[in-house]
Design a binder for these strands. Structure first.
Lengths: 156, 156
DNA sequence: GTGCTTGCAAACGTTTTGCAGACTC
DNA sequence: GAGTCTGCAAAACGTTTGCAAGCAC
């Protein structure tokens, strides 16, 4: 597919129609599955699993199959519209590439907290200095315990 | 047999016999599978997948089954002897809890680089200040591109 | 009409689980 | 002997793939 910039001149996430236009420009077809998936996906900044996305799409298009969701997610990632993150166990989660953040994820209660950008920046800077490593801020989750669960020691 | 002399392990990694003693003290049985698994596991600081560990154990005890490895790894984690890490795709990897580090993992070539302790410390400090979040330094891998792969941009 | 996309089913790799027999204590 | 641990088989889980029919262009 093309490697053109996504933005149509605005500052936020690309719109559904923009992405569909890119797909068409690259020789792809615009299907209702793709339109609905993009609406669901770009409509929020939440990260969602493939299965959750399938359910949301199926609310409007009951025939859509999970494997179709996976295939479209893969292509949207190739296009740079989405990124996915692995939260320890459980399924990968997908979110729009624009505005993707790193996350802390609680290993006890699974709560997630966005990592503040300056912390990520400091880590990325250190990684570069130490090892020439370019950190991908949208693609990792950092495990630990959230404030609540860290407070409860052993509740035996 | 083991060629290491690990004793009174309060500063270094616990020795095989120490852990076996703990198992026995908890009502567990000392089996040859457990002894060999511990020797393989504590004998290096490398992180290895369950399947790799199974192969290493099977070199000495060919009958050992993968599911037995998983069950023992799970128990050793409950005991705090081991931790596991998820490296994006692929299987989880296991390493001794003592001396566990965070890792950068290259998303292109899969190379791993240890994250320097002071960087982890700074991140952990920031996480605590920002959200009261207690980072678990042994349980996450940070994606990105290593120096070599970051140099090659798009080789289109 | 061309050929990209889809639904379905089946395979995949990793991890977990149920069970009867083997073993440690 | 009692209770833990093991091998085996099979399932569970998230994800990928092969194929023929369906749809956008």
């Amino acid at each position: 597919m093309g490697d053109e910039a996504l933005s149509g001149g605005d500052t936020g996430s690309p719109g559904v129609e923009e992405v569909l236009g890119l797909i068409r420009a690259g020789g792809g077809r615009v299907t209702s599955t793709r339109r609905v998936l993009l609406e669901v996906l770009l409509g929020s900044r939440e990260h969602r699993s493939a299965e959750q996305l399938a359910e949301l799409v199926q609310a409007r298009l009951p025939e859509v199959h999970l494997s179709t969701i996976y295939r479209n997610l893969e292509e949207l990632q190739r296009m740079g519209v989405l990124v996915h993150t692995h939260f320890g166990h459980g399924p990968a989660t997908y979110q729009p590439a624009v505005g993707a953040h790193a996350h802390f994820v609680c290993e006890v209660c699974s709560a997630t907290v966005e990592v503040p950008p300056d912390l990520v920046a400091r880590l990325a800077e250190g990684a570069m200095e130490h090892a020439g490593f370019v950190v991908d801020p949208g693609h990792f989750a950092i495990g630990g315990r959230c404030a609540r669960c860290a407070g409860d020691r052993h509740r035996a």
